[in-house]
């Protein structure tokens, strides 16, 4: 979705400075960015509900395997590190896009997509590993709530990777209408949000198991 849907045309009435309706918004913020913040606020409630579900079912499984039986906090820490680093490359991509350093932007977008894809790869490895350890979607409450929560997060990351790849294409071909830096920044907002959600999930789902 492109950002500039502001109906254009007439100037404001006489007695006021002429202003360009394309660029003008009441808050001075870009439409797309503002709308995307409201979406992220909304998505907080989505993940909040999923995490709440996981937490309320924590320790309620009637049969195993239990979290400590399958978790490998070392592997997940590495994948967490990979995802965190992807936020760094994303931030650089936004910086380069805003300062119109095109090859840097493309490089950083691709690097972010690659790091995101390897996070998804880690997760697929983790899921298949857990499955062979006996943790299934249907077997117990832990399996149900774990796979659905982390699966939806992984889906968010995968959508983000797809978005970044398409954006790289659009950016390279100069297909983005309106402010290119802005378009990259909106993708960045999404990416950092998904990253932050993972920090919460990593803390509540994985690290908490090692606190007691």
């Amino acid at each position: 979705m492109t950002s500039h849907a502001v109906p254009a045309g007439a100037h404001a009435d006489a007695g006021h400075e002429e202003f360009d309706e394309h660029a003008w918004t009441s808050l001075g913020l870009d439409h797309m960015k503002l709308a995307f913040w409201t979406f992220l606020g909304s998505d907080c409630f989505f993940f909040g509900s999923l995490i709440g579900t996981y937490m309320s079912y924590r320790g309620q499984s009637l049969v195993g395997p239990y979290p400590r039986d399958v978790f490998s906090v070392e592997v997940t820490s590495i994948s967490t590190f990979v995802l965190l680093m992807s936020s760094l490359t994303m931030a650089l991509a936004v910086l380069f896009a805003k300062t119109n350093r095109r090859s840097g932007t493309i490089g950083m977008l691709l690097a972010t997509a690659a790091l995101g894809a390897s996070f998804v790869g880690f997760q697929m490895f983790e899921f298949s590993h857990f499955y062979h350890e006996g943790l299934t979607l249907q077997g117990n409450l832990f399996g149900s709530s774990f796979y659905v929560l982390t699966g939806f997060h992984g889906t968010h990351v995968a959508i983000g990777v797809l978005w970044l790849l398409i954006q790289t294409l659009f950016y390279g071909k100069r297909w983005i209408r309106g402010d290119e830096g802005n378009a990259v920044e909106v993708a960045g907002l999404y990416w950092h949000f998904v990253d932050i959600v993972w920090i919460v999930i990593f803390t509540f789902v994985y690290l908490m198991e090692y606190v007691e």
Partner: peptide, 19 residues
Amino acid sequence: PMITVGLILLIFDRNYGTN
């Protein structure tokens, strides 16, 4: 979003046998 999660869990229960 909250009822969406409720519905997703229901879809998983009905389609994929979650608990």
